[in-house]
Amino acid sequence: MAHFNVSPRTFFAIIALIGLSACASISAVGPGPVEIGKSYRISTGEVWSKYPPQSRTNTAATMTIDGTILNTLSFVDGLKPGESIIYTSDRDKLIPKYRADMSASELVDFVLDSYSAQGLANGKMTDLRPEKFGTLDGYRFDFTGAYKSGLELSGTGKIAQQGDNLHIIIFYAPSEYYYGLRKDEVDGILASVSLL
């Protein structure tokens, strides 16, 4: 779902293709509780636009308020060992894969390395601390990076393992204006996680 390569120069070409394809079913969610996959629920304070699950990237939901280039909130529900959060049609391509025995910093590296493999530039974890994910012991992390075009990004997220499976919530937005614009809302969402 992450797309870090958007440049205006290629944009007309891309939208021409999208214009031809049928419109994706984007639905309104919130304000209020939203169930993510089969494992957990969050609660929003505002109306978000929600894209359907993408089995190819093991993404349970992707949500945005202003458009995914301007803010993206992505959810993974119970990633299994050996799975990845990157889609590639190239079966021979080497990509980061989740393992159940990863340490906290390895889990965050796994997420950020996966984003880097999709074009996130200069991805860097800037904070990592323990934080509950519902009743699970989880970790909260912040990061910075940039679209390849040079537009700088800030992000935050939360991860936790339930048994051998991994839940991920990750948010990113341009550091200029948009991250700050939605930060309180996203902090509220990250604090609202409850297991189903």
Partner: peptide, 27 residues
């Protein structure tokens, strides 16, 4: 950064206002 943000916002508007991908959150 401001000019690049404008590009990002412009692309977003084109996509969601002109190319058949309306965002319910922007209704």
């Amino acid at each position: 950064q401001l000019i690049k943000l404008h590009e990002a916002v412009g692309n977003t508007i084109l996509l969601h206002r002109f190319f058949n991908q309306p965002l319910p959150s922007k209704k």
